[in-house]
Simulated scan of single mutants.
Amino acid sequence: MIDWGAFLVVAAASLVATAAVVSLYSFGLRFRFLSRIDATTGESSRPAWATVLSYLCFVLSGCAVLFGIYLIVPFFHS
Score class of each variant (00 low, 15 high):
Asp3Pro: 02
Trp4Lys: 12
Gly5Val: 06
Gly5Asn: 14
Ala6Val: 09
Ala6Ile: 07
Val9Asn: 08
Val9Gly: 07
Val9Ile: 14
Ala11Lys: 13
Ala11Thr: 15
Ala11Asp: 13
Ala11Asn: 09
Leu15His: 04
Leu15Asp: 07
Val16Tyr: 11
Val16Pro: 02
Ala19Gln: 05
Val21Arg: 02
Ser23His: 05
Ser23Tyr: 15
Ser23Leu: 08
Ser26Leu: 13
Phe27Lys: 07
Gly28Met: 09
Leu29Lys: 13
Arg30Ser: 05
Phe31Val: 03
Phe31Trp: 13
Arg32Glu: 06
Arg32His: 08
Arg32Asn: 03
Arg32Cys: 00
Ser35Thr: 14
Arg36Pro: 01
Ile37Lys: 10
Ile37Val: 14
Ala39Cys: 01
Ala39Gly: 01
Ala39Ser: 07
Ala39Met: 02
Thr40Leu: 12
Thr41Cys: 04
Gly42Cys: 04
Gly42Pro: 04
Ser44Arg: 09
Ser44Tyr: 09
Ser45Cys: 00
Ser45Asp: 03
Pro47Phe: 07
Thr51Glu: 10
Leu53Ile: 09
Ser54Leu: 06
Ser54Phe: 04
Ser54Val: 03
Tyr55Trp: 12
Leu56Pro: 00
Cys57His: 11
Leu60Glu: 07
Gly62Arg: 01
Gly62Trp: 05
Ala64Asp: 10
Ala64Lys: 01
Val65Phe: 15
Phe67Asn: 09
Gly68Met: 09
Gly68Val: 05
Tyr70Met: 11
Leu71Met: 15
Leu71Thr: 03
Val73Tyr: 11
Val73Thr: 12
Pro74Tyr: 03
Pro74His: 00
His77Tyr: 08
His77Thr: 05
His77Met: 04
Ser78Leu: 08
